[in-house]
């Protein structure tokens, strides 16, 4: 419940800032809070006040407005990266499971190779080669999550494959792609959805980490990671600068984690069966 509310809130804020930025030229946020891009050299590093609820940064920009706008990057990168990773992972997972060896062996070894790099390090190395930029961040993070989705899909498809209805579909001469996409995948969706939610949480942290290291999206955008990176220098003098963007990350990630937990509890038929069995 709480998780769902947070996630919906996060999406709403992201949508708001996107519309506001592209269509309304930041009128709304300026009216409500302040322009997140507007510098003010007389208002540098101000502590939280009524005018600046989260204080200001070293260029006098309003941290609250920037934190709100930062939601957008996190959500876009998270959704795009995990969406891309799950799409590729589902294809790899179903193909390897459906056709078996040797495709299975090769595919899974390739996934093992990807998993042999610590995920954040792989993303960092990819960013080093690709250079900064939104698409590159999305791609670098997506690569990291492909094996996870491939493995989950593979094990789901393997267990569904032995079910009778698949044999029936085969006997009726349906093409393989139809069997996988129409029969098997819909039945395997639950764990994929749950994994999607948890991966959103870690992808958002990964995006922030890359931005924090200076390997993320272009620094002109306000993102939580870039703000934290800027806050490091003023850590002893302006606590608010490092606290609020971090809190934003934590609340967002917490929301996805909570949602993932409750989705798993609600959707997992195994657990449901156990609950039935307990009387």
């Amino acid at each position: 419940m709480v998780g769902g509310v947070i996630v919906v809130g996060v999406f709403a804020v992201a949508l708001f800032s996107a519309i506001d930025d592209f269509l309304l030229n930041r009128q709304l946020i300026t009216m409500l809070v302040a322009d997140p891009y507007e510098t003010d050299r007389f208002a540098r590093l101000l502590a939280p006040s009524l005018e600046h609820p989260f204080g200001t940064d070293e260029q006098g920009r309003d941290i609250f407005a920037r934190t709100l706008y930062g939601t957008r990057t996190s959500v876009v990168v998270g959704l795009a990266a995990v969406g891309f990773a799950s799409a590729v992972g589902i294809v790899i997972g179903s193909v390897t499971a459906y056709y078996g060896d040797p495709i299975d062996m090769i595919g899974m070894r390739a996934m093992d190779v990807l998993l042999s790099f610590p995920s954040i390090l792989l993303a960092i190395a990819l960013m080093a080669i690709l250079g900064r930029g939104l698409e590159n961040v999305i791609f670098a993070i997506a690569i990291v999550y492909v094996p996870t989705f491939a493995r989950i899909t593979r094990s789901e498809v393997l267990s569904e494959k032995s079910e009778q209805y698949v044999g029936a579909a085969r006997a009726m001469g349906y093409p393989d792609t139809n069997i996988v996409s129409r029969e098997i995948l819909p039945n395997s969706l639950t764990p994929i959805i749950v994994q999607f939610t948890f991966s959103m949480a870690t992808a958002i942290i990964a995006e922030a980490a890359l931005s924090f290291l200076g390997l993320g999206v272009s620094p002109i955008h306000p993102t939580w990671g870039i703000m934290l990176s800027g806050a490091r220098q003023y850590i002893t003098s302006a606590w608010w600068y490092s606290i609020f963007p971090g809190l934003a990350i934590m609340v967002t990630v917490l929301g996805f984690n909570l949602l993932g937990d409750s989705l798993r509890d609600a959707l997992d038929p195994q657990q449901q069966r156990d609950a039935e069995g307990r009387m």
């Binding site: 949480a201 942290i205 922030a208 980490a209 924090f212 934290l228 806050a231 490091r232 850590i235 002893t236 606590w239 490092s242 606290i243 971090g246 990350i249 934590m250 609340v251 990630v253 917490l254 984690n257 909570l258």
Partner: peptide
Amino acid sequence: ALLGISMPNFWLGLILIV
């Protein structure tokens, strides 16, 4: 534990320093 999982480690590091 849930908070611990949801907290970016570099932010926790910054907070610990502060």
